[in-house]
């Protein structure tokens, strides 16, 4: 039940994009086409899961015993940057199809704050390795749900007669606000608070 609460809380109630405001650059940047949104979700899921595993291990087996906790910001971001590079090289060689599909989204992920935030939150919430993994999968699922919904909405809005001043980003923000409002309805479900 605790694992389910972590999963559901991460995916819906505290949705990383709509409730926590993390990873917004990609949310607004990539979501003008549905297929891009889907590719980005896969890339994020993949990198986030790997980053969570590696940073959790590093923190508990290296930084904590050595008393180097204050280095975690520098450590985590470098590890994530290196990880993205490695994944990119590996995929280029062994999975060219997937590599082409993810294309430019992979390197962009280094600066996706959602990845680093999840690495920090796993530590701050005191999650075990299993709980961290469940949390990470929940978060990336929530990322996918939000960005796919949002991209579909934006494709419709592109064809709508929007007032001149609202064209582009402003209407996208209003849309995100309405979507976020809808997600507020899940607050308190199964006793999970915002």
């Amino acid at each position: 039940m605790r694992l389910f609460a972590i999963f559901f809380g991460a995916m819906i109630v505290n949705n990383i994009l709509l409730m926590r405001f993390l990873g917004l650059c990609s949310f607004f940047g990539i979501s003008n086409k549905l297929e891009n949104a889907v590719s980005m979700t896969w890339a994020v899921t993949f990198v986030m899961a790997m980053a969570s595993l590696v940073t959790w291990g590093l923190y508990h087996f290296l930084l904590l015993p050595l008393g180097l906790v204050f280095l975690r910001t520098a450590f985590f971001i470098l590890v994530i940057a290196a990880l993205v590079q490695l994944v990119e090289m590996y995929m280029k060689k062994n999975a060219p199809g997937l590599y082409r599909a993810l294309g430019i989204y992979l390197p962009l992920i280094t600066t996706n704050c959602a990845i680093l935030a999840v690495a920090f939150l796993n530590i701050d919430y005191g999650y075990s390795l299993l709980e961290s993994l469940v949390y990470t999968v929940g978060v990336s699922g929530g990322y996918g749900v939000a960005i796919v919904l949002f991209a579909s909405l934006r494709e419709r809005v592109d064809k709508a007669p929007v007032p001149e001043a609202f064209k582009g980003y402003p209407i996208a923000f209003i849309l995100a606000g309405l979507l976020s409002l809808a997600f507020m309805g899940f607050a308190g479900m199964f006793g999970i608070q915002l």
Partner: peptide
């Protein structure tokens, strides 16, 4: 209350940028 909740942030910044566009963007 809406304004201090997450949806309010999105709505407010959308309105602010739209207002800014209205006054700076040439017709």
């Amino acid at each position: 209350l809406l304004l201090v909740l997450p949806p309010g942030a999105f709505l407010l910044i959308g309105l602010l940028i739209a207002g800014l566009n209205r006054f700076t963007r040439r017709a």
